[in-house]
């Protein structure tokens, strides 16, 4: 039984990726930026799983597995960083990370 053309899976992954990028670039909130990163990784996973089915090869799924592991590590470190930043500055606005003293909110 056939499902859909391969390109449709890739289209889905592309759109998801674009959403992740917009979230990453447009939201002025470190937590939302991290969420955007998760969306990006998820889009990549979908593309890999689709490719795995297209070529009937399990390497794609293996890569998706590793992506999940990396995402878990990245999220844990990223959230810890956000917590540290919040503790120091009391804000999660990415602008507080800027080196200019004028924009630093301390």
């Amino acid at each position: 039984m056939s499902i859909v053309p391969y390109s449709h899976v890739m289209t889905l992954a592309t759109l998801l990726f674009v959403m992740g990028v917009v979230c990453l670039v447009a939201r002025r909130n470190l937590i939302m930026m991290l969420l955007g990163l998760e969306i990006l990784l998820n889009a990549a996973s979908i593309a890999f799983v689709g490719a795995s089915l297209r070529w009937q090869h399990m390497d794609g799924q293996a890569l998706a597995l590793f992506i999940m592991a990396v995402a878990a590590a990245e999220v844990s470190v990223g959230l810890a960083l956000i917590v540290a930043v919040f503790r120091r500055t009391g804000s999660v606005d990415p602008e507080v990370l800027e080196p200019e003293p004028s924009t630093r909110q301390r």
Binding site: I3, P5, Y6, M10, S52, L53, R54
Partner: peptide
């Protein structure tokens, strides 16, 4: 991205169901 996906060779190939 959509341009790249649509010009990809073999992109219109149907995916067959299979289970790992």
């Amino acid at each position: 991205g959509l341009l790249a996906v649509s010009t990809q060779p073999g992109g219109d190939r149907l995916l067959k169901t299979a289970v790992a």
